[in-house]
């Protein structure tokens, strides 16, 4: 079974040289720490920065320079700033190659819910609805089950929807799943996790890839 760092490491394997990537808050942000050294990836922050650099040294902290998760960051060589309309313009027009998001629920047809729990939590959707409505390639990084132990991979989302049929892949502590017309397709299982256990913890339709294998994190 993976921890959150393992999930981030596995998603980093999906990155390709030259990709522009938007990383959501939480586990997705960790993916930045595992970008393979032989490739260059440009990270987009929807508050108006292309080319997010590492956290600043203490004396370099700049209140005017934050990422979408409100953390202080730096710029990388070749970075640029822009306003919020252009930021979502580049997302909407399909320039961003990969989007990694967290989720509360994902359905086996690619629907995603991640912005509201009626009566309990009202934080708002931020940029999530814009991202899921336009991104070409969306990977969800999340825990397989919620705090009550219930599957977050469902036949149908029970929480208010963020976007329809948009998720392409889900990576959890248990495995890697493609969204296919047949439902969640298990491609890789995490070390020490059995396929039967994954079946038990998945409520949506689940098919097992013919060439299913154990995940390697390198």
């Amino acid at each position: 079974m993976l921890d959150k760092f393992g999930i981030a490491k596995r998603i980093a394997q999906e990155l390709k040289d030259g990709y522009y990537v938007n990383l959501g808050i939480g586990i997705p942000t960790l993916v930045a720490n595992y970008v393979p050294e032989n490739i260059e990836v440009i990270l987009q922050s929807e508050n108006g920065l292309l080319g997010i650099g590492p956290f600043p040294y203490p004396e370099e902290v700049d209140a005017d320079l934050i990422n979408a998760g409100k953390q202080t960051v730096t710029t990388k060589k070749g970075s640029s700033f822009f306003d919020s309309a252009m930021s979502f313009g580049m997302i909407r027009s399909g320039r961003v190659d990969l989007t990694v998001l967290g989720a509360m629920e994902v359905a086996d047809n690619g629907d995603i819910a991640n912005w509201k729990i009626p009566g309990k939590m009202v934080k708002g959707m931020g940029g999530a609805m814009d991202l899921v409505a336009s991104a070409k390639n969306i990977i969800v990084a999340m825990q397989h089950v919620n705090k009550a132990g219930e599957s977050k991979l469902l036949a149908k989302c029970s929480l208010p929807i963020t976007g329809l049929g948009c998720v392409k892949k889900v990576v959890t502590e248990l495995g890697v799943f493609d969204i296919t017309p047949e439902g969640f397709k298990l491609l890789e299982y995490a070390p020490g996790v059995s396929i039967d256990y994954i079946k038990e913890k998945t409520l949506g339709r689940l098919v097992i890839a013919d060439d299913v294998k154990e995940m390697t994190l390198g």
Binding site: S84, M125, D130
Partner: peptide, 25 residues
């Protein structure tokens, strides 16, 4: 949605009455 918020401002400043966006469908 945040992109909708930004673009509704943009439309006002560009003198356009409305926009079409996929966010929220």
């Amino acid at each position: 949605p945040q992109g909708t918020l930004a673009t509704r401002c943009l439309a006002a400043g560009y003198g356009m009455p409305a926009i079409f966006t996929p966010a929220g469908v």
